[in-house]
Amino acid sequence: MSIIDLTSMGEPQSDQRKELNDRLAKLQDEISDYCFQCARCTSGCEAHKLLELEPHKIVALLKRGLLNELLNSDVIWTCMSCMKCRERCPQRVAPVDILFALKNMAVASGKQIPGKYTGMLQSILSIGLIQDIQQTTTRGNKTVKRDELGLPPLSKPVDVAKFQAGIMKIAMEKV
């Protein structure tokens, strides 16, 4: 199984894109009736000051059908998923969920996945966790690992082949 299968959740990718398109179209339809651009989401957005994310504009752009522009934009990857927008929207629009859907769709349509996401995914695939046991340093500059602290063995998938097969089957199904 390749990382491509996992990121796109299977072949053929055109079907995948269609599914995601439908999901986004649904979001587009629903939000078009509700969002009245009060920008309360943006006023509380954790990524606004630092990274210029403006959730109400994301909603507005999607509403106007500028899907490709959004998928190609780095700004969808600045969301910190604090969920304040979802919590505070008087119209229950949840820009954070729209951003997750956009990022998923960007990945499924073959755009490059930024940062360490691919590495984490590879790690999940091989050991079930985003990373293996790390050696850490104490304040006194001693190095330690979990067994030296008397901690029990790490809980992770025992039968990795079965675990991988499970993910693979899910990947081959339609979302």
């Binding site: 996992l6 999940i124 985003i130």
Partner: peptide
């Protein structure tokens, strides 16, 4: 302590929510 747990999946939510 229970054997066999994996990642909760949340770190992958931006990549694939179904995963």
């Amino acid at each position: 302590d229970v054997e066999g747990f994996s990642c909760c999946g949340e770190p992958m939510k931006s990549v694939n929510q179904f995963l």
